[in-house]
Design a protein around this nucleic acid. Structure first.
Length: 645
RNA sequence: GCUGGCGUGGCUCAGUGGUAGAGCAGCGCACUCGUAAUGCGCAGGUCGUGGGUUCGACUCCCACCGCCAGCUCCA
């Protein structure tokens, strides 16, 4: 057989992966947890003598760690059954950074029971039970799990079509599983149970809610500790925490859930973003409008939202003879803007943009700080174009997105093209020709851009295919920030027209697009991305002037005035506190620049510049600093290096 | 909405079936200070809300509201 390094190894007939490892070396044999044979992961106990290639998997590889965690999930299940023999096991997969097991305890289960459970798991690990794979006829296993009163396992088995299935046995514990697994439970060195939460069986709200226990495992205790430390550190970047600590936004019970208040400093960030994106869009040929956040219910009946989206809308209110609703999106208003005039084919595309205030009723459990709210302002636009312009407009939007991401410092993002599920005529507008055309044009545009994308069948909007751009957050999750949607449907609903070269009316196509998402979500994202330490152009306070003593106040105020004259956001910390204290507070508030002013600076018309996170970088004339900071801000550089501007 | 947890001054958190505590923040006074917290003092809470149990509830029970983790949902 061939090894990964290209060498060839002869082994006796019937040799297992473990024996191959032994032949290669004792250290490897001890470290190996599984093997990859012909591209497939298998247990060490698998005979591999017929294989052409064998690669041994250790805990140094991502696959090895996954196997470790998967086996740890089994140990958890085993411990659960020892302590709760009546528990019904559902599924126990690995996830990024850990694993979970869904279990029906038939009674409330709380996190307080973790320590006892962990104790039992440690026993299972100490027993060092060998883990065996067995393959049996599926029907036999259905009976087997019926006898063991494991209905969820039976249900899974009933949906499997293979004639045989594999199970894994460790001591008295048996689980239905594809594997592979560690050779024995004793190989688990470091694990922890983390949290407990409810999860619907099969992810279906209408099915029973199970108890999901989350845990994780690492090759060594040190790595586990390191992971727990990282999780703790991530908590400090949480935008809700930073939002309070830095005075950016607040949510108040009196105002209502999901209805955040933008405090002055958060508003400064938002205003900066708004001015930035509006200017950029104006340059890109968009026309910005203002339309009201309310409309007659009728408008949404025409658009179809009333039928398809009502559960996410606030209920209507009756005023005089009108019935009004808070708008959940801006498209109908923008359509009405388009309809205010006749349009010639020569003036298309018409790009109507707005920072549109919308309200959506979101279920209470999903509300999260600024990231998920009920009242939000979307960086929205609707492009009305001819069918032959779709591809070009689509390209222009994606390029705009790419530029914005560069300015905001987003480097890690993925494109997802969401298509309809042709079988689901309930969710998606039933018009196959329309869908096929839209999907083809979008694919062509993406190919032309040369971007790689994944596809999500069934993820489209009800009116057309969409491209989502998901940006990797600090937490490692990808969050949808931008979206581009082709829509052949609303123009039909609203009877939109343009006059073609043939002097006949034609139907335009709409492209819905959001580049920087809602102001709320984007701000939340940026807070976490930068951990509150914003680049200068976004920082709510760009410089704080720190007079050393009272006699320096006058010059401090003059420096402030010069900063403000250049539209820089600055403050004077005139409190009766020592310099050290003012510096500490400014650092904690993550202000990019601190300008210390004492006798020397007053005398020379200078400021002693201290850069956030770096310290004293020397004194320069106040005018020089103002000019450099203004340039830095204008350049939208992501670093604070004043010498490079 | 569902499961579990949590709710004590602006913030972070102690605490207990028998008259509510600390630190930070705030206010006052003193210090006038050179690169990450000056000192002293003062004030501030119907212990989320509403019921119930009890001689007595912040503590125990119930309901509701909100927050957190996750699920579900997400045009």
């Amino acid at each position: 057989m061939t090894l990964p390094d290209g060498s060839v190894l002869e082994v006796p007939a019937g040799s297992t992966a473990a024996q191959v490892a032994e032949r290669i070396g004792r250290r490897l044999a001890q470290a190996a947890v599984a093997a990859r044979v012909g591209g497939e992961l298998v247990d060490l106990s698998t005979p591999v003598d017929q294989a052409t290639t064998v690669e041994l998997i250790t805990l140094d590889s991502p696959e090895g760690i996954q196997i470790l965690r998967h086996s740890c999930a089994h140990v958890l299940a085993q411990a659960v059954l020892r302590r709760y023999p009546q528990a019904k096991l559902a599924i126990g997969p690995t996830i990024e950074d850990g694993f979970y097991y869904d279990i029906d305890f038939g009674q409330p289960f709380s996190q307080e029971e973790f320590s006892a459970l962990e104790e039992e798991m440690r026993k299972v690990i100490q027993e060092d039970l060998p883990i065996h794979r067995e393959v049996h006829p599926r029907q036999e296993m259905i009976r087997f799990f019926q006898e063991r009163r494991q209905p969820y396992k039976v249900e899974i088995l009933q949906e499997i079509t293979d004639p045989t299935v594999s199970i894994y046995r460790q001591g008295e514990f048996v689980d239905l599983c594809r594997g592979p697994h560690l050779p024995s439970t004793g190989r688990i060195k470091a694990f922890a149970l983390l949290s407990v939460a409810g999860a619907y069986w099969r992810g279906d709200e209408k099915r029973p809610m199970l108890t999901r226990i989350y845990g994780t495992a690492f090759p060594t205790a040190a790595e586990l500790q390191e992971h727990l430390r990282r999780v703790e550190e991530a908590r400090h970047r949480d935008h809700r925490r930073l939002g309070r600590e830095l005075g950016l936004f607040a949510v108040s019970d009196e105002v209502g859930q999901g209805l955040p208040l933008w405090l002055p400093k958060g508003a400064a960030i938002r205003r900066t973003l708004e001015r930035y994106i509006v200017d950029l869009e104006l340059r890109a040929g968009y026309e910005h409008v203002y339309t009201p956040p309310l409309a007659r219910t009728e408008l949404y009946k025409i658009s179809g939202h009333w039928d398809h989206y009502r559960e996410n809308m606030y209920p209507p209110m009756k005023v005089d003879d009108e019935e009004l609703v808070l708008r959940p999106m801006n498209c109908p208003h923008h359509i009405m803007v388009y309809k205010q005039a006749q349009h010639s084919y020569k003036e298309l595309p018409v790009r109507i943009a707005e920072l549109g205030l919308m309200h959506r009723y979101e279920r209470s459990g999903v509300l999260t700080g600024l990231a998920r709210v009920r009242g939000m302002t979307l960086n929205d636009a609707h492009i009305f174009c001819r069918p032959d312009q779709i591809k070009d407009e689509f390209l222009r939007v994606v390029r705009l997105i790419q530029q914005v991401y560069q300015d905001l410092g987003f480097h890690d993002y993925v494109y997802t093209l969401s298509l309809r599920d042709p079988a689901d005529t309930h969710k998606f507008v039933d018009n196959p020709l329309m869908w096929e055309t839209a999907e083809r044009v979008v694919r062509e545009a993406l190919d032309e851009l040369g971007v790689t994308y994944r596809t999500d069948v069934g993820g489209a909007a009800f009116y057309g295919p969409k491209l989502d751009v998901d940006v990797k957050s600090v937490a490692g999750k990808y969050e949808t920030i931008s979206t581009v949607q082709v829509d052949f449907y609303l123009p039909e609903r609203f009877q939109l027209e343009y006059i073609g070269a043939d002097n006949q009316p034609h139907r335009p196509v709409m492209i819905h697009r959001g580049v920087i998402s809602t102001m709320e979500r984007m701000t939340a994202f940026l807070i976490e991305l930068y951990g509150g330490a914003f680049p200068a152009w976004l920082a709510p306070v760009q410089a704080v002037v720190l007079p050393v003593a009272d006699r320096h106040q006058t010059w401090a105020q003059q420096v402030l005035a010069r900063l403000q004259a250049e539209d820089l956001r600055a403050e004077v910390d005139g409190r009766d506190e020592k310099l050290n204290r003012k510096i500490r507070d400014a650092e904690v508030q993550k202000v990019p620049f601190m300008l210390v002013i004492g006798d020397r600076e007053v005398e020379n018309g200078q400021v002693a510049v201290r850069q956030r996170g770096k310290g004293d970088i020397g004194s320069i004339p106040a005018a020089t600093f103002v000019e450099r900071l203004a340039r830095l801000v204008r350049s939208r550089r992501l670093d604070l290096d004043l010498d490079r501007v």
